[in-house]
């Protein structure tokens, strides 16, 4: 039961875009000094989204598996690199741990989605594969980012305790277990919180989009439920993955804590 869907004209877009003047006026009146940044943000919003729209138009029309996979791969690498941007520490090869974790966890969940849960024909149908993986990636990214950040905080802040345990005969795992647990918890909490309040405090973006496109509410809800569970598992796997890969990098097989590899980056 598809409902009519209203297409937007360039004029309508322009009206919406002009709303940025409200932000500009506030900045000017209160002397926030945000004018330049608002302008850049507004231009980036329009340009980036229009570019994505053009790329997607082309991919949707072309619809070959290698094109779709190529685009998904680019999205995945960008997500992996973006995940470490706001992390408060660095170690050599951290970007690789992040990319590997986001790749393995998101593609596993993406495969579960298009092969088992939403049996799409063909499996690479861009209309499904791209937004599904995109949503999984976006959340895995923030789980990885938060988990890594917390791991660094714990290992740098608790280095004396970690070393004291090693000095008393703890294995590297016994010494690092507490920081690892804290890091994984921190990475998983936002998605758990989101699942707690979903539908009560806010309507999730995908569901909102489907409603706007005229999909029956109960159908939109079903998709939202599926995607939330995919996101939750993807985030958990991505967070565990990046934390364990970092642990393997920061503790060597001689049970030494290679703290000198860690550099704070804030």
């Amino acid at each position: 039961m598809e409902r009519p869907y209203l297409e937007l004209s360039a004029w309508q877009l322009a009206i919406a875009t002009s709303l940025i003047l409200i932000n500009g006026a506030i900045s000017a009146l209160l002397g926030l000094g945000l004018g330049r940044r608002l302008l850049v943000a507004a231009v980036r919003t329009v340009v980036q989204l229009l570019l994505v729209g053009l790329v997607l138009e082309w991919v949707f029309r072309f619809s070959r598996w290698y094109v779709v996979l190529g685009l998904l791969a680019v999205m995945t690498v960008v997500a992996g690199l973006a995940a470490i941007q706001r992390v408060g520490f660095r170690y050599p090869g951290m970007w690789l741990s992040s990319v590997v974790s986001v790749w393995a966890s998101s593609w596993l969940m993406g495969a579960a989605a298009v092969f088992a849960i939403v049996p799409v024909e063909p499996w690479y149908a861009p209309q499904y594969a791209i937004p599904l993986l995109g949503m999984i990636l976006g959340n895995a990214l923030s789980g990885i980012s938060l988990g890594l950040d917390r791991l660094g905080e714990e290992l740098i802040g608790r280095r004396p305790q970690v070393e004291a345990m090693l000095a008393l005969g703890a294995t590297r795992w016994e010494a690092a277990r507490q920081p690892i647990r804290q890091a994984v918890r921190t990475g998983m909490i936002p998605i758990i919180n989101a699942m707690m309040v979903v539908g009560i405090v806010s309507l999730p973006g995908m569901m909102t989009g489907q409603l706007l496109a005229g999909v029956a509410p109960i159908e939109a809800v079903k998709y939202q439920i599926v995607i939330l569970f995919l996101i939750a598992s993807g985030t958990a796997l991505g967070t565990v993955g990046v934390v364990l890969l970092s642990y393997r990098r920061l503790f060597n097989s001689d049970h030494q804590f290679l703290h000198q590899l860690m550099k704070e980056s804030r």
């Binding site: 090693l166 000095a167 008393l168 049970h255």
Partner: peptide, 17 residues
């Protein structure tokens, strides 16, 4: 190494508890 460190214990000047 862990068993060795259980035998050869290093005590730091500012102990971490």
């Amino acid at each position: 190494v862990p068993a060795y460190r259980g035998q050869v214990i290093y005590l730091h000047q500012r102990p971490a508890l």
